[in-house]
Design a protein around this nucleic acid. Structure first.
Lengths: 116, 116
DNA sequence: GGCTTATATAAGCGCTTCCTGATACGATCG
DNA sequence: CGATCGTATCAGGAAGCGCTTATATAAGCC
């Protein structure tokens, strides 16, 4: 499943937002989503599965609980895809800014190559 | 239809990539997509409709042809949503870079307010 | 005007997605 | 150990999406 398909669902986007501030238990996520969207626990669990399998989230068991955390890699892919269009909203991307962006991208590629 | 739903389809993402380098005729878009994805002209036309209606593309008639162009506004929204997660891949977002980003965002908000 | 080209719309169908209710399963606690 | 808690999985159904074929509409050309 492609990154954008995963992000196509509002519940999954919201879960990622919740996780953006730190680890959360499946239970607390479920409770928040249940309040906001009115869906059941299995529904939330299935969304968590999609996020896991698409690499947007990682899980860590702690006793009976499961602690979910964001994995930002696929989100970086989305960010990279947007590079095709950044010129449209930053027409005067000046030299300094370009250099920062270029350096960051390079660093990232380097990191990926050196960490299997 | 939400921005991410629109981007969930690979054909539509590809169309936007094609348009990122400038205006294109419905016909040339259709031809490229037909080669790459093996779908028919009506299928492409329906995708163009989705892009139009979701505000990702604008059309301009020129005789019998229709010239499509990117409208980047919804893509900026996507970019903004990613701000929730930028800290994950730029942990040492330094002061200068932060300032650039902040300034850009502010400029954008200002632009929106002053252009009805 | 009639034919062709360029593009959009309509109708219908198969597939996927997301949901619910029921259930499984491991951890915890008495 | 049995009951309960926390979470995941399964089966099935409704709705939506994307595709195709057929058709409409408007422009260009003879």
């Amino acid at each position: 499943m492609h990154a954008f398909d995963v992000l196509g669902d509002p519940v999954r986007r919201r879960v990622l937002e919740l996780l953006s501030t730190g680890e959360q238990t499946s239970g607390t996520i479920t409770e928040t989503i249940r309040e906001e969207f009115g869906i059941t626990q299995p529904a939330v669990s299935q969304h968590l599965r999609v996020l896991r399998e698409a690499g947007f989230a990682t899980v860590r068991p702690e006793g009976a609980r499961r602690l979910y955390a964001v994995n930002a890699d696929p989100l970086r892919d989305v960010d990279d895809w947007l590079n095709h269009f950044r010129a449209f909203w930053t027409p005067h991307l000046d030299a300094l800014e370009t250099e920062i962006a270029r350096g960051r991208r390079q660093r990232r590629l380097h990191d990926e190559r050196s960490s299997p």
